[in-house]
Design a protein around this nucleic acid. Structure first.
Lengths: 217, 217
DNA sequence: GCTTGACACGAACAGGTGTTCGTTGTATAA
DNA sequence: TTATACAACGAACACCTGTTCGTGTCAAGC
């Protein structure tokens, strides 16, 4: 069932209020914002919003309402953060090593929203050191978020360790008859062919973040 | 001044509670969680947390407290999201146009954490269309977050509109004596020199995000 | 010893807050 | 017309909630 105009205004107000003030509004705050003098009318419409799945309510608790994941826009507001451990650096000359979490877990994290990352399972982040990943369109200082896995599907952007060359590289991987094609992300660059037993997949690249402007302390 | 153990526990509880429940706790909820029976004691310590800059309080408002940006890690956990309007596409052949917000604001947003973006002012996002930004290490489909401004400092990565060439490009900008040097992010590529009156700065690039793996619907 | 300040406790209070109830008006179907 | 459901109103109520006040303890400094 569709929402009435009043209910839409209420929902928008709740969303805006929650975002700006860091807390949900009270029934009376909602009422005065949309021009309802009676708290019971607000309550009545809140129940409808709840029934329709737009908000969650907690009984007899002040400000006991919460926006629920709805359209893509509100998902982000509701679902929360994903914390991904920042495990270290990635460079051409060294294989990626994923240390096990110590007793207290990892020290450094990068926070992303669920809009960017859906499944946190097995994800970790590395900061790129040096210019060796330029052909993957990845620069010094960029952060790559990877999922740990030893296999890859055709076309996946993966981090591979080349045993002979003793080198880590980020490329798209395609299996061909007797060899593996490693395709740079930069379309102007030529692919690289290697024997299958020379490559060791270390993980799949899920996200790349480049901060041009560092935070103020 | 450092926080007492009690105040740290209170702060952690407020952070956790706010994140999990979507609303800040009441004084009594804080009290019972850290084992304080008196509301005035909680109030006393909340005032200290406020004085030390950990929280903001609003007088005589239920649940009127809010976590404030503090350590880098807690910022992300507490302060919340930044919603940046996704205004459209950026391609080589067209200038960037920033439409004014309509009556209902913008439609599409990208959510980022405050860890990645500190100041939301004047920021907007564009999705890159085509391969023309390869020399800025930016690929088709990447999202660039920019800050609208007409001027730039030396070394800023900016989006410029080249009037003669009728082209948008992303480069690092350096003013030299009589000309402007546009330096590609890719260090293997050569700079590009233009006359000062040929360039029109459209904004500064703040962040680049590349999603290798698209979300499931 | 005395004072001072930090920290803590419980009680009381005024106003905030969600809930409930009776009532009214208006469509729509029987 | 009558009945029913929907939408809205205002009042009353009980509990929640932030604030304030008086009191107490303890360690540091004089």
């Amino acid at each position: 069932m569709a929402l009435s105009e009043r209910q839409q205004k209420m929902f928008e107000f709740i969303t805006k209020f929650s975002r700006e003030r860091g807390r949900p509004p009270t029934i009376r705050e909602i009422g005065s914002s949309v021009g309802i003098s009676s708290t019971s009318v607000v309550n009545y419409n809140l129940n409808i919003l709840q029934r329709e799945g737009f908000i969650a309510r907690e009984k007899e608790v002040s400000r006991g309402l919460r926006i629920i994941a709805q359209g893509a826009k509100t998902i982000a507001e509701a679902a929360g953060f994903v914390q991904i451990p920042l495990l270290g650096k990635i460079a051409a000359g060294i294989p990626i090593q994923v240390p096990d979490a110590g007793p207290g877990g990892y020290d450094d994290f990068i926070s992303l929203t669920r809009e960017l990352i859906q499944d946190q399972e097995g994800l970790f982040a590395l900061r790129v050191k040096g210019n060796s990943m330029i052909d993957a369109l990845i620069n010094d200082g960029d952060i790559v978020v990877m999922k740990k896995q030893e296999t890859a599907q055709n076309g996946d952007m993966v981090a591979v360790w080349l045993k002979e060359e003793k080198e880590t590289t980020l490329k798209r991987l395609y299996r061909e008859k007797s060899r593996i094609r490693l395709q740079p992300a930069n379309p102007t660059m030529k692919p690289f062919y290697v024997k299958a037993d020379n490559v060791q997949v270390q993980g799949k690249v899920v996200l790349v973040v480049r901060q041009l402007q560092r935070m103020a302390a």
